[in-house]
Design a protein around this nucleic acid. Sequence first.
DNA 1: CCTCCACAGGAATTTGCGGGGT
DNA 2: ACCCCGCAAATTCCTGTGGAGG
Length: 400
Amino acid sequence: MSDSDDLFVRHDPIFAQKELLEINHLPDEGRIVGRDEEMKNLANAVNPAIFGQSPSNVLIYGKTGTGKSLCAKHISQRLVDTAHEEGVDASFAYVDCAQDSTETQAVQTIAAALNEQIETNIKIPDKGIATSTYYKRLWQILESRYDVVLVILDEIDKLEDDEILMQLSRAGEAGKVHNCKIGVIGISNKIKYKEKQLNERVKSSLCEREFVFPPYDGNQLNNIMEARRDAFRDGVLEDGVIPRAAALAAKEHGDARQAIDILRYAGEIAQSRGVSKVTEEFIVDAREQAETDRFRELLRGSTPHSRYVLQALTILSLNDGDGDGYRTSDIFEVYEEVCRQEGANSLSLRRVRDLLKEHAFLDITEQSRQSGGSAEGSYTEHRLLEDPEVVRDVLVDTIE
DNA sequence: CCTCCACAGGAATTTGCGGGGT
DNA sequence: ACCCCGCAAATTCCTGTGGAGG
């Protein structure tokens, strides 16, 4: 800071190691806070893999930002390392089922993650071949390279069917794979996932062990953020900042990811204002920004019509504030108007129903079934879960 | 208990695209 | 070159449903 003879800025005045605040950053073990019990349980479940035996299949429940993926990845990595020391060839594959929601995409990702083309001489193309071909190649890879493999299926409830779970659990028995054990770690944030139409044999094999990750409390959030203090330069963070952010995040959902986002945005706000300290009053803005950002992320990649539908609902919500729910047919009418203005052909009512359902699935809206009673029929009402103003703003600059 | 309405939502199918294997 | 595969988007057709009032 005091190198006054420097012509150029030699370093970031706020951040020292910004990577520590990236969502995907995997901290070293000392930095995982408040999940000791969970880590122990997980380790215990997969432990047999170290001796080349079958690990237990695991299902992890918990809301977003409770450290599910983090712990799963961390344990898997540790397991692979330890197994190596014992002379066992182990590896793990991580699949984000929100991204790879079909059976084929999921197998492809697993196979690609475990493959090493130079070594196996097996090609795993991104797409274009039959699902069964992916399986055949995957089994080949497993046979030739590994003794034991862990498959992490994150957001497993986003998977369209459980065929892949069937295949994985059956691989050994059906003689597809002889010398390689497979363990599955499923991660879900919908508690009712298991009940909801899971094939009976999949259910029993997948759910050998079940763990629930509770939300973090204010104290733990505080520690989590404290552990990443090194992301900032010395003296940049004022004392009250972390406790304040922790309290705010704990009040909402106990979501660690959001807490860390808030911290990062607070730093960025300081940066853009050209000040050298992060103070408490930045926190409120930072939280707002974290939320807008999360929402923008949800909408990224959605089709124009999906956005028009959302826009229709937003228009309705803005026009009468008291509104607690609008029925599909009303939304559809506004939607048709939106389409006219945008110069697009409107889709069928049936399709719009599906689009609305998708929004509900992403927790952008909420649906509830209503009944009008006598000869009034039954219908579904939709309401926005986010602030309509925020939605409108995000929609406006997403459409460009 | 039955009816009646206004929908919900499942099933089947089409279209069009990107990208295989041989 | 040709045919096959997966998949998303969308349509069409159709059956299912909740509950107040008869």
